[in-house]
Design a protein around this nucleic acid. Structure first.
Length: 182
DNA sequence: GCAGTGATCATA
DNA sequence: ATGATCACTGCC
């Protein structure tokens, strides 16, 4: 399904930096049901976040930051509310938003919006690439989040292990840090 | 099931 | 410089 044009939907409040300056799991859960806004030229699109994954700090063996501070992961060690965008398998862009305090090195992966399933497809549908890396989630960037209203009831949120993180070992691959809007 | 695809990082 | 790995997707 194509994202709706902004003209046809109600506008919400821009999520502030403080929203992201919390533990990754809280942010991942909190982002479900929020609007992911994308502005390119004169076109503004709005998509509802339906699936996320939390990647905690360097102690989380599934997190890129567990490998230490590198050129790629540098943004994870920075302030909350910035995007961490990287390419995987030479093909797909992954969209994350950094969470927690500086040096927490945590982030949330956007895995699904509306009827778009899979993080690579999310980025493709929103025309997201490296140019968004290390940019702030504010309207001026052209990519940001908005709160549309009341928070979701817990029963609509399903928690499961994260996808594709077997390399993290039995303990961290089993942690229920994936959040899906039912 | 598995090929495609290339950046990234450790090793040298 | 070289090689392994990869928070995936699409087609068999």
């Amino acid at each position: 399904m194509k994202p709706k044009l902004i003209a046809s939907i109600e506008r919400g409040e821009v999520l502030p930096t403080s929203f992201f300056n919390r533990p990754a799991a809280h942010v991942a859960r909190g982002l479900l049901g929020k609007a992911l806004m994308r502005k390119r030229g004169a076109i503004v699109m709005s998509s509802i976040v339906t699936e996320t994954e939390a990647y905690e700090g360097p102690h989380d063996l599934a997190s890129h930051s567990a490998r230490g501070r590198t050129a790629r992961t540098e943004v994870m060690f920075g302030p909350a509310g910035r995007f961490y965008v990287y390419r995987i398998y030479g093909l797909h862009w992954m969209l994350n938003v950094v969470t927690g305090d500086i040096d927490d090195a945590a982030a949330v992966l956007i895995r699904g919006v509306d009827h778009v399933s899979g993080p690579g497809r999310v980025a493709a549908s929103l025309k997201i690439d490296r140019s968004l890396n290390d940019r702030e989630a504010v309207p001026e960037t052209g990519l940001w989040f908005e709160d549309l209203g009341p928070s979701l009831p817990t029963r609509r949120i399903k928690k499961t292990p994260r996808i594709g993180v077997d390399y993290a070992g039995p303990v961290w691959s089993a942690k229920k840090l994936r959040f899906v809007l039912q």
